[in-house]
Each structure stands twice: as structure tokens, then as C-alpha cells.
Amino acid sequence: MKKKIKLIGVMLAFVGLDMIANPQPAQAAHNGYRVKVLKNYYKDSSENTYHANLKSKAAIWSGKRYPSDTQRDFQKRLYKVSKLKGVTLFVQKKARVTHKNTKAIYYYVADRAAGHQGWVRPSALIKGVSPYGYQIIKEKWGNQMATFHAKNSKQNVYIWNWRHTKKRANLKNYPASNMRRKATVTLRHNKKQSTYYFVTMFPDGNTPIRKSVSGYVAASQVEAGHNMNYSQIEYTSIDQFTDSADYSNYIQNGKKQKLAREIVKLFPNSPVDLGLSRIAAYDYDSFNNTSDGDPNPISKTGYTDIKVFSSIQKWLYAHETASNATKLTEIKQLLDKEGYTASKRASLSGYKLGIQIVNNIKGYDGESDDANHWNGYVLVLGRPDNN
């Protein structure tokens, strides 16, 4: 009995070794095709870049790119290779296909957007990028995140699909838009090369992701930095501003900064300071909390004698829907109660103003993407260390 058990164990071991040596056995398709994958390509590179041989009479057949795909291998002919002018294809898998008594090598190919994909004979392909249309010949992902906007909001600046055949958006129609770059690519067209960015465009600065538009935009038509067309912009994150002058420009011209402008006038000799405003936003308010609601304070280095007007902040949060006139009247009264009368405010010397007013702006929930209203109210005074 022990010998029999030992023999069964040895046999199972050989079966296990065979499974390890052949991790992807041939699988029978519904119509008698057997596919044995010989090699997988995990990256798109020059090694596996091809385009269609337009003289070929071959077809691309349906296939399973991923195990979860419902499409069966060689279930039907999808399209003729001769119709794929301007399409660059990337080999995903190399396989030996057996059908009846014949064997042949096939490639599973897919274009960049997986719009064309399936099994095809290698003889129907030509090595390299397609010489027709706009072709991405070089791309760089990773460490590419940056904010961009149109150089000229009055000119036509298009965001294109990856083949440069369809306009997805015209930035001229979105004067308040910002774009987040995700990749830099080189496009070739008629033997000329141009740099493009793959971007996600947010139409008015605080658009939910479901209303954003992604695509390729010519690098020559955009410039780095956030959109400063503030009269058209409802909201810009305080982290986007470059300096105090930029932030003051936003407050003075922002589409939804009317209340902030009136508050700034109450402190005629205390100019708005971006550094102090960021401290106010992160250390003394909840609007800039992390997605799970936790505060994310920053260093107060560089500022002393910080005065927080918490009574004003508390009242504003309790009366978010009040009119700007009502809010301003109450702010003046609360300032007087705290000893900051109009005469004292006018006599202040060496103090800067830290402020962030997000006043009932239409926004969205950061997690659910549902529409809601944003409110954030904070006001502080502080003295820079160099004063």
C-alpha cells in the first residue's frame, strides 16, 4: 500500500512539473482552433510595433485578449487588414494556432486605444509605425503632472483624440479651463515631428471628473501654470497660486470673490499675503482638510503674532446662504466687538492679511463626484518675521 501511495506521489510530481514548464497550455476554441501562447508583450516598444500591410488580403480575427473577455478566439473575422491605413498596431501576444491539421503563428494585436484588436498572421503586418496620418512615435509618462492653460483663450486650441482625427474640445469655448498634463508625446505627420501633451481638461476650474475631457493638445499652444482669466473662473485652489500678487489678482477679479474683495477693503494697510493665506486655510479652517476629513496643517514659520477671527468664521459657516451684504454687515460688527474698529484697522502697520473665502460656490463631492456647494471662510492677521 505504501509503495502504491509513493508511486501516485511520483506521478503527481511529474504532472506538476509539466504544468510549471507549460503554464499556458493550448486551449480549444469553440470552432476547433487551438491557441497556445508562446510569448506575451507587456510593453509597447519598437520590438512589437507594426502597421498594416495594405496589400494584404488577410483579416483580423476576434480573440480573447484577457481571460475575462467574452469574445472567443477566431469566432469571426472582424475587419480587413487593407482597411487599416494609418493604424499602428502593437503585438500583445505571439501564439501557435492549430486548426484541423495545420499550424501557424499568429499575433494578437491592438491599437493604442484598443479600437482595433484581434488575431492576425505576421505576413499581414509591416514592422514599425504607420507612415500615414498622425502617429505617436515617442511618449513619456510618469513625473509629467503639471497644470497648463491655453496661451491665447481667444484662439482655436483643440484637444484631439489619439489619432488626431477627432476634435474633443476647443479651449476657445472654455476660457476658464485648466489642464492637467499626464504625458508628453512626439507626433509625426508628413515627416514632421511635433510635441503634444496628453491632458485632462477641466472646463471651469472646479469641474467634476465626469465632466472633464481628455486628449492630446499641441504643446506650442499652451503654457505652464494655472489659468489666470479670473473673471471667468469660479474657483482656483490656493495651492495653484504662484505668489501674493497672483493671489491678490484672483481676489480682485475672481468671478466668485466679491465678498473677499469687500473684506480686504476693511484692512486698507494690511496687504493680502499668499503664505499667510495658506496657513489660514490649512491651519485654521476645515475646507482644505484631507478627503477623510482630517486636518493637514502646514508650518507657520515666517509669521508671528497671528490673530485668528474665529467668531467671524463661526458666524459665516452658520449663515452660508446669507447675502453678501448681510455677511459684510455682521463681519464689521464682530470686528468692532473684538476691538478691531475701522480706525484700528486703518492704523495697523507691519501686518499682512491671510484670507480664503469660498462663498457658496457650486462644486462637487471629492469622493462621489456628486454636485454640491463649497463653503470655506477664514480670516487672519499676521506679522512677517522680517518686519
Rank of each mutant, 00 (worst) to 15 (best):
K166T: 03
K182G: 11
R188G: 07
I159W: 05
S177Y: 00
I159R: 06
Y174V: 06
S177M: 06
R163P: 04
R188E: 15
R181P: 07
R168Y: 07
I159L: 10
T165L: 00
A169S: 10
H164E: 08
Y174E: 07
T184N: 04
N178H: 06
R188S: 15
T186V: 15
I159M: 08
R168I: 05
S177H: 02
M179R: 04
H189G: 09
K167N: 05
K182D: 15
N170T: 02
L171Y: 03
N170F: 06
R168L: 13
A183C: 12
A176K: 03
H164P: 00
W160Y: 10
W162A: 12
N170Y: 10
R181N: 14
A183L: 04
M179Q: 12
R180I: 13
R181I: 00
K172T: 04
L171E: 07
M179A: 10
P175R: 03
V185E: 15
R188M: 14
T186E: 12
K166L: 07
K167I: 07
R168A: 01
T184V: 13
Y174N: 01
K172W: 04
L187H: 10
A176L: 03
L171M: 14
H189Q: 12
N161E: 04
R180N: 05
N178A: 06
K166S: 08
R181T: 09
K172S: 01
T165A: 09
R163H: 06
A176F: 07
K167Y: 06
N170L: 09
M179Y: 11
Y174S: 09
R188V: 14
N178D: 15
T184Y: 03
N161V: 08
H189Y: 13
P175E: 09
R163C: 00
N178Q: 11
L187M: 12
W162F: 06
A183Q: 15
H164M: 02
R181L: 02
K167S: 08
